[in-house]
Design a binder for these strands. Structure first.
Lengths: 210, 210
DNA sequence: TTTTGGCAGTAACAAAAGTTACAATTAAAA
DNA sequence: TTTTAATTGTAACTTTTGTTACTGCCAAAA
């Protein structure tokens, strides 16, 4: 745990804080597809992302989803932060996009560290800023772009997160995350294929150049 | 200024903090329509909203807008918070929706108070939470609802903010804020009128029941 | 091997939203 | 008063997105 911490957070957290994290934090491995947080949950600990990726999803009244953004190493969940402090329920769902390792911090420490460590405060504020920025990008996508452009962005994002030009998703799964229908995704993917930008296979998509 | 502060923040801030705010804060009156923050600006002070309302807007690549949310009394601008701390440029535009009074806090104080006052920390975290929640609602609107429903929400919101069942906007102005076209807004408003939910006038809309 | 269920392709159609164009009305400016 | 500009209403059309339906294909299960 010490190594993972140092690798990802050494330049961010002061040494005394690193020591405290080692004391109270617990390492947790999460399998791809595993759910970390469900909408309506009370959250009792805060995750520091060591490796892997977590996708954050919003749900509509029919139970359909929309992908908001991904968390990567060095990130934490801003929603969790406020849920912990404000004792409110989670507004979002969090699911591991890849096999993921996190350090869980008990919420009691959060308030304490915020008073005690400047580096912790900066980290928390920085996280909020990053999340607000990502929310803005999400809003840009759905408000300003058509589905074909949103799909391209989605594929680019997925490639970046997984660091793999092969995306192992079905059209239905992509449709869920973009909050559209399977037929629309199939249609647009076919168009991208005919432009030579991707190649389609069963259960996977190969990205050529987007 | 003391009175405004006590009215809006007395139950939130501890007395010592109130005193400090009185020392370093400056009262500012803003006329309806006046711009507080432009996209790309560096922000050097943080606003505490005493009265009135401020609308927060996002811009697309063509210069067209989208209304994100309103700030009201007791609120502060979460974007400003992180812009100040992180020394980044503003991602949004802020315009007074009504005649508005704010207290401006120099950014140097922010970092200091965050270490010093628990009530300040809570206020800041609470603000972030509120803004994230409002961003989620904005996302819900544009991703999950059709324009007719978004328009109704918009009118309801406007009524709540101005505390007036007469909305003094042109169809064009509404179209800008919803990031659609004037013709679409006129069409949908006409439908609402024929349902007896609103009454249309030149430059204004009277809300009957939404 | 046969059966079953999930996945992808596509046509045909419907609904929602955006665009263009023009007329009528009102208010402000000359 | 006349002119001008802004505002609203509406028709006609296009584009985008969503829906329904049906097909063939593949892989896992029976």
């Amino acid at each position: 745990m010490l190594n993972s911490l140092k690798e990802n957070f050494a330049n961010i957290f002061e040494d005394a804080l690193i020591d405290e994290i080692l004391e109270v934090g617990t390492l947790k491995n999460i399998k791809e597809g595993e759910k970390l947080i469900e909408i309506g949950d009370y959250v009792r600990s805060m995750p520091l992302l060591i490796s892997g990726a977590i996708k954050i999803l919003r749900e509509d009244e029919n139970g359909d989803e929309l992908l908001l953004y991904f968390l990567e190493r060095g990130d934490t969940c801003a929603m969790t932060l406020t849920c912990c402090l404000g004792q409110t329920r989670s507004e979002i769902r969090a699911i591991a996009e890849l096999d993921t390792t996190i350090i869980m911090i008990p919420i009691q420490k959060m308030e304490e560290w915020t008073g005690k460590y400047k580096s912790w405060r900066n980290f928390v504020f920085q996280s909020y800023h990053a999340r607000l920025t990502e929310m803005l990008e999400t809003i840009d996508s759905i408000a300003f772009y058509n589905m074909d452009e949103r799909l391209v962005k989605y594929l680019q994002n997925k490639q970046k997160i997984t660091n793999d030009s092969i995306i192992n998703s079905t059209h239905q799964e992509i449709a869920y995350e973009l909050h559209t229908s399977r037929v629309v995704v199939s249609r647009l993917l076919k168009k991208l294929e005919s432009l030579g930008k991707i190649k389609l296979f069963r259960n996977s998509i190969q990205i050529i150049s987007l």
